[in-house]
């Protein structure tokens, strides 16, 4: 694990230390404007980007993860398998670079309320070399209370996720992000973590004006030494996804494969015990549709 963290840190120091030219020679104006579209959408697979649409934009997101591909053609590589997870989300941009949203997820009938604020936007002439955003959500497990234990309290339903995201558009093609997050569940199963700190690394590489190769890696950190009660707990597995994105004026369509069935981030960071193994991969997609008001 420490090797992973060290490698990631080296990558980031190298990456963000460089000062590659961003845009074309025409960008010599006095006002250093934000770079154009570091990402095509506020979503990148099952994570967030630093991108927030213009004020008064409504975004509708459909996220879907099918079953695992392990059964091959017998269930069409998971497309016809039971147990698919679905999230429908609505986000609205209430002020410049401030977005609020809500979503409903099939797994545990979860409802989430979320907000994102892009504090800094990277600029074309590197006056601001990085984008910086904060994202958070609070989610409510909506299952019947019989599904919980005898001492059920309403607060048992709650979980939360907070994340700082730093990103940079290196060229017209390549944009990368990293992030640090904290996930919390009020109630968890025996032998699992209430809290989990994690790091995130994701990006896109444009291969055509509308198409990009995309990837995402979420790594829950094993900080067991901070929690002596967690000595025997099994750390959640990293979530790795890769796919392809096609974007238009009002849509982004991302199809991918990944090894976590979760669609809200705290679920991915705390509850994913599915190893990065081809049999555990499942096909998924994220579609966003924008309306401007």
């Amino acid at each position: 694990m420490r090797k992973y963290i060290f490698t990631l840190s080296c990558l980031l120091v190298f990456a963000f230390g460089s000062v590659l030219a961003q845009e074309t020679e025409t960008e010599t104006k006095k006002v250093d404007k934000p770079v154009r579209s570091p990402f095509e959408s506020g979503y990148l697979i099952d994570n967030q980007t630093t991108v927030i649409q213009p004020v008064n934009t409504l975004e509708f997101a459909i996220q879907h993860k099918f079953g695992t591909v392990e059964n091959g053609h017998s269930d069409l590589w998971g497309l016809f398998a039971s147990g698919a997870n679905i999230r429908l989300g609505l986000n609205y941009v209430v002020a410049n670079n401030v977005q609020i949203g809500l979503g409903v997820t099939k797994d545990k009938m979860t409802t989430d309320f979320n907000a994102k604020w892009t504090i800094l936007e990277q600029t074309r002439n590197n006056t601001v070399p990085l984008a910086l955003a904060v994202y958070g959500n609070i989610a409510i497990d909506g299952r019947d209370k019989d599904q919980f234990h005898d001492d059920f309290k309403s607060s048992n339903r709650l979980s939360s996720f907070a994340q700082v995201i730093v990103g940079r558009k290196f060229s017209d093609e390549l944009s990368l992000q990293t992030g640090l997050s904290f996930s919390h569940y009020n109630l968890i199963n025996e032998g699992m973590y209430h809290d989990k700190v994690g790091v995130h690394f994701n990006g896109r590489y444009k291969v055509s004006p509308q198409g990009s190769i995309i990837f995402n890696l979420d790594m829950p950190l094993d900080l067991g030494y901070l929690d002596t009660e967690a000595d025997n707990y099994e750390n959640p597995e990293p979530n790795f996804s890769f796919g392809y994105e096609i974007s238009t004026s009002t849509h982004a369509f991302q199809i991918y494969m990944g090894n976590s069935s979760g669609l809200i981030q705290q679920d991915i960071m705390v509850n994913n015990h599915s190893k990065i193994d081809m049999d555990n991969f499942m096909i998924g997609f994220t579609i966003t549709r924008l309306w401007n008001f």
Binding site: T24, E25, T26, E27, D172, P209, Q210
Partner: peptide, 16 residues
């Protein structure tokens, strides 16, 4: 209408 502007224009034309 230099190469930089045309590149941006083409990219945005393709998208929108």
């Amino acid at each position: 209408d230099d190469a930089g502007s045309l590149k941006i224009g083409k990219m945005l034309y393709t998208k929108h």
